[in-house]
Nucleic acid binder design. Structure first.
Lengths: 150, 150
DNA sequence: TATTGTTATACTCTATAACTATA
DNA sequence: TATAGTTATAGAGTATAACAATA
């Protein structure tokens, strides 16, 4: 092992990737936790805040302010469930769906910039190796462990 | 791109690696910032706190408590510079050098556990690709951008 | 009584600025 | 005056626990 192991490199490059992503979506006035919530709501609309919290592995209390902020901006909305009036169903608004397009563009640009040093083949290899590790380590696809700070 | 891009995978796996590393060195009653400081002091002994702060990209004020804690445990020590009595030279103690052996063991075990799903060849490939990205992105070897939380 | 969502509180970590001592 | 180190203060972010509404 020359100098630093793969585990450290992963943590280092991963933290760098998170930082750059934070900067990039900052241009959309979005924080990483907000982006994570948006993506989950887009992927699985209509879930309660408790259900969302469980999937993100975060206390439900944390979602209140998070949902508040995005709701005030008109990107998501709470709908009361008529059958059980304790629950909200969190969903994207029309504006929210349009906004997700811009987020996806930012994510794609971020992806290209981060792996700019790799060839197409190397990029595919990296993706495969990372997927292998993620699966082995029991990571949930699309769920970032411990959101980076806004 | 099937599902998630490499950038997200990097951030996800990297955060997971940082978490597991935090747990592992926690058994040595060490936090990631402490481990980072120890490693730097071991690699370049005798530097002032200002110089260390500059290399870690952190405000010098943050180092005070960090150095305090490790000094109280007898792992590092401040030595006054006789030529310029404003400066300290931060160095490992004898106990500190012995302790670094245990840290290195923990880091090696962490490395093996994280890449357990890969073959030797795949591990080497991953290391090469990550190094390529780290170099391209201008990351300083051995310096973690934004320490994980204790 | 149990559950969803909310609010209130406390705690951790960090950065900024003010202070001291040496130069 | 300028720099190394320290201390004090304030800020952001998070988690824990208490609360209100509904079941």
């Amino acid at each position: 092992m020359n100098g630093f192991g793969s585990a450290f490199l992963l943590a280092q490059v991963g933290a760098h990737a998170a930082q750059r992503f934070t900067e990039r979506i900052g241009e959309l006035d979005l924080t990483p936790p907000q982006a994570g919530l948006l993506r989950l709501v887009a992927a699985r609309p209509g879930q309660s805040q408790q259900a969302i919290a469980a999937q993100l592995g975060t206390p439900a209390t944390r979602l209140v302010a998070l949902v508040d902020g995005l709701e005030k901006r008109g990107l998501i909305e709470r709908r009361r469930n008529p059958d059980d009036r304790r629950l909200y169903a969190v969903e994207l608004t029309e504006d929210g769906r349009a906004f997700m397009g811009r987020v996806a563009q930012a994510a794609a640009a971020h992806d290209r910039a981060l792996t700019a040093a790799l060839s197409d083949g190397e990029r595919a290899t990296l993706h495969a190796l990372l997927t292998k590790i993620a699966t082995d380590q029991g990571l949930t696809p699309g769920v970032h462990p411990g959101y980076a700070k806004p």
